[in-house]
Nucleic acid binder design. Structure first.
Lengths: 203, 203
DNA sequence: CTCGCATGTAAGTAATTGCTTACTATCTTA
DNA sequence: TAAGATAGTAAGCAATTACTTACATGCGAG
């Protein structure tokens, strides 16, 4: 009982494919995402996928671009929500964790691409993403240190690594628990510990 | 020009296979490790692999066991090197990072297994590993809090998550950089930031 | 109204996967 | 020294991979 065949524009299908990949990555390893599974997830045949992307690599690249736009967009929006550096950091942290909770496949995709050997276009894109992420992080941290709300002896590079690691730790914890339940609450506490690690001011 | 055929005990080959997997994981994604590549890495034919392991799953399990023994062994040894909780934590941190530097494939294997769906014997083993890791971490943190060297308002669960995340962040940074160069130095600094985040005492 | 093209399907392709098979070489030991 | 066990090889298995091809069809422009 095949369902009625639906015709959509290629642009529409491209976006749909990207979303399907992100959704599938939430439940299985990116390495196990085949074009057949993608097609199955959107009620298409496997061959139809190649009407909208020339190659599977192109799909991964489109996914990477979507992650870049969405995550960096959320981060930037969060950083603009306040003028106080520490509040900016907290908003960014919250936004990043919120993104990971909303799209649990995204961090997996990033990690999966990074550990691929060699240099692909996808990997370069992901590196660029993380580079500009780290860049805004460093900028805020440096500004905070100049204002004295972050202790001047803190190495901002190390602080940025710990900031990113804190989120990684939360993601890992959620993979252990088998779900994203309670992650946002833990995030609050973990960020608190991080914050008192870099705080200067009243000491 | 095939090299002279070498005969080794099955026990010897099993250990060799585990080491080959760990070494291969340092250079490529665990998903790309095939039995043929394993065999190639140790100058054997692919079929010979199955003389020493009944199935590929059994290989992954043996690898997980090796990681558990080696990592937990190093961690325990480090934690016994001192009686002072904060020094214990630092020794554990150093030992863990050292392990990741010596065997860069190990964290990838752990992450790869964790994001596999369902419940396999391998995944259960990895969960057990991380569980007892976190257990000793919590024990030390609680002891430190009772002695007052860790601020009493610190949530030890969150602190443990941040501790593990800090290492994850360092691993991620090294994957970005494309190598493990300089990680141990960064580790020192990152741990310093973490430490001042949980430190109580002289405030 | 109709015709061309974009979007779909179904059935291929070669390559690669984990694993098995039939057979051979080496070592131990009675 | 003959026999059995162990560890190796090469070839081939069915299943799965990304990707291609041949053919069907519905929508919009002329």
């Amino acid at each position: 009982m095949e369902t009625a065949r639906v015709r959509r524009s290629s642009e529409f299908r491209q976006a749909e494919i990207v979303q399907a990949v992100v959704a599938l990555a939430a439940e299985c390893s990116p390495a196990d995402i085949t074009t057949a599974r993608i097609a199955g997830a959107m009620a298409l045949t496997q061959g139809a996928i190649f009407r909208h992307f020339p190659t599977k690599e192109a799909i991964w690249l489109a996914v990477a671009e979507w992650i870049e736009e969405t995550l960096l967009g959320a981060i930037e929006e969060a950083s603009l929500s306040s003028g106080a550096p520490l509040e900016q950091l907290q908003a960014m942290f919250r936004a990043h964790v919120g993104f990971a909770v909303a799209y649990p496949g995204a961090p997996r995709l990033i990690f999966h691409e990074l550990q691929q050997p060699g240099d692909s276009a996808v990997k370069r894109r992901i590196r660029g993403l993380l580079g500009s992420y780290r860049g805004t992080l460093l900028q805020i941290l440096k500004g905070a240190r100049e204002r004295g709300v972050v202790a001047h002896e803190v190495d901002v590079e190390h602080a940025a690594t710990l900031f990113i690691g804190a989120i990684q730790g939360l993601v890992m914890q959620s993979m252990l628990a088998g779900g994203m339940r309670g992650v946002e609450e833990s995030a609050q506490g973990v960020f608190g510990v991080f914050l008192s690690g870099i705080a200067g001011g009243q000491r």
